[in-house]
């Protein structure tokens, strides 16, 4: 029952600091790429934002690996970028939203008809793949890197914004690049729709941080009623409210 000689704050043990301090990697002995890839790539802005924001423990991963998370963050940010109107996908926590969704029934297609046989479909017959969304996503993210490496000799997160847009464009429209078991378009559509969902769904799900997605477009979230506002000829700006407010 003795106090520790050195009580340690959480930062002392963050992965980055650990690596820096322990000397385990400094000696250049990084094993089979084991440790290197575990360190977040963009450390600078990370350090700053950590200092200011209150900690949200929900911002951790249930599904992605670090690399997948970073690729998702980069790709969604191109789809929904930060600009003068407000935060982009990254600032909104969209990649966390996607991570949590893919870990759940949505990623498992739990409510979809997944019995075979699977045939090639006409355009009007809807998706026929028996691959689950989580798998399509993982293959798609790998595809983004593969294609980036092929065309720009670098992984997706290391490309310039213009190059990233070019890669995404290819995935959105072209047929020049093939994924195993899914089309790039299938993946891209999933990526795009989940980006929009993550920007605008209730913050309960891990995206739409601080309701900033809603604030940008003056959407008031979950209000009890609009009997007054609805008859107003002027636009009425209402501070948004999340489902959390209903918990009393």
């Amino acid at each position: 029952m003795v106090d520790s000689n050195k009580p340690q704050g959480p930062e002392d043990h963050s992965r980055r600091k650990f690596i820096r301090n322990s000397g385990i990697a400094v000696g250049g002995i990084v094993v089979g790429g084991a440790l290197g890839s575990l360190i977040p790539t963009k450390q600078k802005d990370k350090d700053q934002s950590n200092a200011e924001k209150p900690i949200n423990y929900n911002d951790a991963l249930m599904f992605f690996t670090m690399e997948q998370f970073q690729t998702t963050e980069a790709a969604t940010e191109r789809i929904f970028p930060e600009d003068e109107l407000g935060p982009g996908a990254k600032g909104l926590g969209v990649a966390y939203y996607i991570d949590h969704q893919l870990a759940g029934p949505w990623g498992m297609n739990a409510k979809d008809y997944m019995e075979g046989p699977a045939y090639n479909a006409e355009a009007t017959q809807g998706t026929q793949t028996l691959m689950r969304r989580a798998d399509v996503f993982a293959i798609g993210l790998k595809g983004l890197d593969d294609y980036s490496n092929k065309k720009y000799e670098n992984k997706f997160t290391e490309l310039t914004a213009e190059e990233q847009d070019d890669v995404l464009q290819v995935f959105d429209v072209a047929k020049e690049f093939k994924l195993s078991g899914a089309t790039t378009k299938q993946f891209f559509e999933l990526l795009r729709s989940m980006t929009i969902e993550g920007a605008y769904s209730d913050p309960l799900y891990g995206g739409n941080k601080n309701m900033a997605g809603w604030k940008m477009r003056d959407f008031p979230g979950s209000q009890m009623g609009y009997t007054e506002a609805i008859m107003n000829k002027e636009f009425v700006k209402i501070e948004p409210q999340s489902l959390r407010e209903h918990m009393g």
Partner: peptide, 21 residues
């Protein structure tokens, strides 16, 4: 839909496939 759905085709010439989602 995982329990029950319908299959769809535009014309009799097509193979009907399940509305999976």
């Amino acid at each position: 839909l995982s329990k029950e759905t319908l299959t769809f085709r535009n014309t009799e010439k097509m193979r009907a496939l399940p509305m999976r989602t």
